[in-house]
Amino acid sequence: MTPNETAPPDTAYADAATRLLRGRPATRDALLPLLHALQDEFGYIADAMIPVVAAALNLSRADVHGVVTFYHDFRRAPAGAHLVRLCRAESCQARGAATIERIATQRLGVTMGATSADGRVTVEPVYCLGLCATGPNALVDGRPVSRLDAAKLERIAAEVLA
């Protein structure tokens, strides 16, 4: 009920928000760029960032929370050390994505959308990387890989689980 009297904002996040907003008016349309930048820096959108971002852009916590939870990109907990995003859209399905998904999750020891218990790898679905003639496709730590097959998956697993 007293928005300006809540606990003091987390200073590390507040400092980062100030730095990341530099050179950009602190208006609402800076919200997505700021969230992206914070996630790039800290790996995820922590609960404690929400009041910080709200204060930085003069929004309510509800405003920020609504946006953070709307977009699939913003994660609320850190991902694993490695991130494997497997495409499961139609064009990749037409080229055997379901089989690849089964092999990949089995080999990496983690279910789709989850992070392995040791925190080493997160496997997530992605709906289209725009590589639709050469699927099945993946983004492995941001690197695109096309024509995924068992051999390529094995190389990826070796790299990720090393």
């Binding site: 929004l59 309510s60 509800a62 405003d63 929370h65 609504g66 939870t69 709307f70």
Partner: peptide, 9 residues
């Protein structure tokens, strides 16, 4: 007050 929002999608 902007205290409410929709969570998720």
């Amino acid at each position: 007050t902007f205290a409410l929002t929709i969570d998720g999608s």
